[in-house]
Amino acid sequence: MANSILRSSRHIKLFHALSLFSLSLLIQRVSATEFKVGSSNGWAVPTDANAPSYNQWAEKNRFQIGDSLLFVYTPEKDSVLQVNKDDYTNCNTGQPIALFNDGHTSFKFNQSGPYYFISGIVESCLKNEKMVVVVLADRSGRLAPPSPPPSTETGPSQSPVETPAPVGEESPSPPSGASSMFVSFVVSSIGAFLGSSLLLVM
């Protein structure tokens, strides 16, 4: 009798531990953050010499897979281009990975690594309206969902353009429409279900 009570108590503790682990995985994915680029000034040519540059701002933040950037700007006067490293350095607007011109662009990170953004207006880019964001690697052992193949359709707010990545550099894909939060929830739920089923069998 005492043996079965101890065994039952261990199963309950194990079940609670697995449930808490699954819940923590879910909470970690739900806590994705949207960062507004340029704070109240939005995405524009920097006018205050004392204000931190976009890169200084980006270095002070920790970006993770699932987080997103919000670019706010006047669509008739500006745009946002995602580009490769060389085009970032040279303010080359000719072959962007993606073009956004809707004035309220939300860009979601779907993989780790560097992302390069410049203004669609060369003169603005040359005046430091550009930014490098480094997204941290996912150290939890979970993988981000695969990116869908590039779309051949172009809408008014974004025009994906495929460019090969320079040798030795992996270029991030445009944002994915898939919800990593949903995938994490499903994986966590299955893990909790399997864990609790094993406990009941024992």
Rank of each mutant, 00 (worst) to 15 (best):
A2R: 10
A2K: 11
N3Q: 11
S4L: 13
S9F: 09
K13W: 04
H16C: 12
H16Y: 05
H16S: 12
A17D: 13
L18C: 12
L20W: 00
F21G: 07
F21T: 09
L23W: 10
S24M: 13
I27L: 15
Q28V: 08
Q28L: 11
A32K: 12
F35D: 00
G38D: 09
S39Q: 13
S40T: 15
S40M: 15
N41L: 13
N41W: 09
V45I: 15
V45P: 10
A49T: 11
A51L: 08
P52V: 04
Y54E: 06
Q56C: 01
A58S: 13
A58Q: 03
E59V: 07
K60T: 14
N61V: 05
Q64T: 10
S68D: 01
V72S: 12
Y73Q: 00
P75S: 14
E76A: 12
K77A: 15
D78G: 04
S79Y: 03
V80I: 07
L81V: 05
L81Q: 02
V83P: 02
K85F: 05
T89P: 00
N90Q: 12
T93I: 15
A98Y: 06
D102E: 11
G103P: 01
F109Q: 02
N110P: 06
N110D: 02
Y115V: 07
Y116Q: 03
Y116V: 06
I118P: 01
I118F: 03
G120M: 04
G120S: 02
G120A: 03
E123Y: 06
C125R: 06
C125H: 03
L126W: 04
L126M: 10
K127F: 09
E129N: 10
E129M: 11
K130F: 05
K130V: 01
M131A: 08
M131K: 00
V132P: 12
V132T: 15
L136W: 04
A137I: 01
A137H: 13
R139Q: 09
G141R: 10
G141S: 06
R142I: 13
S147V: 04
S147P: 02
G155W: 10
Q158G: 03
Q158F: 11
P160G: 05
P160S: 07
V161D: 06
P164D: 14
A165N: 07
A165R: 04
A165T: 03
P166C: 01
E169N: 03
E170A: 07
E170T: 12
S173P: 09
M181T: 14
M181C: 09
M181G: 08
F182T: 13
F182L: 15
V183W: 05
V183D: 03
V183Q: 04
V186R: 10
S188D: 04
S189N: 05
S189M: 09
S189C: 06
I190A: 15
F193E: 09
F193L: 15
L194R: 06
G195P: 01
S196N: 12
S197V: 11
S197K: 07
S197G: 14
S197N: 10
L199K: 00
V201K: 12
V201Y: 14
M202F: 14
M202R: 14
